Amino acid sequence: MKNKDVFSWTSMVNGYAKFGELELARKFFDDMPERNVISWNAMVVGYSQNNQPNEALKLFLNMVEAGLAATENTLRIQFSLILENAVVDMYAKCGSLHAAATIFNEMVERDLVSWNSMVAGYASHGHATKALVLFEQMTRLGFRPNDITFVGVLSTCSHGGLVSEGQDYFKSMKRNFWIEPKVEHYACMIDLYGRIGQLEEAYELIEKMPMGASVAAWGALLNACRMHKNVELAKVSAYKLLELDLEDSGIYSLLANILAYERRWS
């Protein structure tokens, strides 16, 4: 394009933000020769919808300082939601789940970030039932989960050893919500199989990954091999990890410990 106006730039920011490419969205946003309130909102909403409420809040405050909030009422509503999401996210990550839930339950308005923060908080602190109940409540109320939501849900199933539930949720991503599983979702499933000792199933899933296994996926399998004393599969996992990062001393140490435990001294 020879001539790019504020609408052209904003379209690029909005497009990248919607697909979670926040670094590219922010680069376009920062390079814009001029911005309007829609440009700012596109970037703020991008951060918010991709579970980065602190970045959303920071940018929103910059927007306010620039005098670009449309009306006093819009300012109040947007600020309230972004701020509450940031606080819920903070409390949930710190393990103060009662405080996070109190704020969440008192929120006049919630968006997907609000629900994702609570689901992820319950998941990471071992409250599997609460996380899954909240997820089902969220979908019943008409909120459409995204890939971040399912990382929280599958992590919940992994930490809770809920194999059949995890399999159902993993399949439902594409079947019910048209979400293509990403590396993180496969890693959650591999961790789930590994924790309960289904190492062959975990390995088969790694082999079927369409995008190639990540450090997280092979690392989950290696850790499961340590837990369940599977030396041969541990060697396969460790060598795959070393192909991805040859200088990670932790991989060598973990494999050495697994072999030593089985008295494979040579």
Rank of each mutant, 00 (worst) to 15 (best):
residue 232 E to M: 09
residue 214 S to H: 06
residue 216 A to T: 06
residue 195 R to K: 15
residue 193 Y to M: 03
residue 224 A to V: 06
residue 243 E to F: 04
residue 246 L to E: 08
residue 245 D to W: 00
residue 209 M to H: 15
residue 234 A to E: 04
residue 197 G to P: 10
residue 216 A to M: 14
residue 222 L to Y: 05
residue 224 A to C: 10
residue 199 L to E: 10
residue 234 A to D: 05
residue 210 P to H: 14
residue 216 A to K: 09
residue 191 D to A: 01
residue 233 L to T: 02
residue 242 L to P: 00
residue 205 L to H: 07
residue 202 A to S: 07
residue 193 Y to Q: 05
residue 248 D to Q: 05
residue 220 A to Y: 05
residue 231 V to N: 07
residue 191 D to Y: 01
residue 208 K to Y: 08
residue 190 I to T: 04
residue 223 N to R: 10
residue 231 V to S: 12
residue 206 I to T: 15
residue 243 E to H: 03
residue 211 M to C: 12
residue 213 A to I: 13
residue 210 P to C: 05
residue 226 R to Y: 13
residue 248 D to I: 00
residue 239 Y to T: 06
residue 217 A to P: 00
residue 218 W to H: 02
residue 199 L to V: 06
residue 211 M to D: 09
residue 195 R to A: 11
residue 200 E to K: 15
residue 190 I to C: 02
residue 222 L to M: 10
residue 228 H to K: 13
residue 238 A to L: 13
residue 248 D to R: 00
residue 234 A to L: 06
residue 218 W to N: 01
residue 239 Y to D: 02
residue 230 N to L: 09
residue 248 D to W: 00
residue 243 E to T: 05
residue 205 L to C: 07
residue 230 N to Q: 14
residue 198 Q to F: 11
residue 200 E to R: 14
residue 205 L to D: 03
residue 220 A to C: 04
residue 193 Y to R: 03
residue 199 L to Y: 12
residue 208 K to A: 06
residue 240 K to P: 00
residue 238 A to K: 10
residue 204 E to D: 12
residue 221 L to W: 07
residue 237 S to V: 02
residue 191 D to P: 00
residue 209 M to L: 14
residue 235 K to Q: 08
residue 206 I to D: 05
residue 200 E to M: 13
residue 248 D to P: 01
residue 192 L to H: 12
residue 201 E to P: 04
residue 199 L to Q: 13
residue 235 K to I: 09
residue 199 L to P: 07
residue 225 C to S: 10
residue 234 A to P: 01
residue 237 S to M: 01
residue 209 M to R: 15
residue 204 E to G: 10
residue 209 M to G: 04
residue 235 K to E: 11
residue 210 P to S: 03
residue 210 P to L: 09
residue 242 L to S: 04
residue 218 W to I: 02
residue 247 E to K: 10
residue 225 C to W: 10
residue 198 Q to S: 08
residue 239 Y to P: 00
residue 196 I to R: 12
residue 205 L to G: 02
residue 247 E to L: 06
residue 194 G to F: 04
residue 227 M to L: 15
residue 246 L to V: 12
residue 207 E to D: 14
residue 227 M to Y: 14
residue 203 Y to T: 04
residue 200 E to T: 12
residue 223 N to E: 15
residue 232 E to Q: 14
residue 197 G to S: 13
residue 244 L to E: 08
residue 188 C to I: 07
residue 216 A to W: 11
residue 237 S to K: 01
residue 209 M to K: 15
residue 205 L to T: 04
residue 192 L to R: 11
residue 204 E to R: 15
residue 220 A to T: 02
residue 198 Q to H: 13
residue 217 A to K: 03
residue 201 E to W: 05
residue 241 L to R: 06
residue 199 L to W: 14
residue 212 G to V: 08
residue 223 N to W: 13
residue 197 G to I: 10
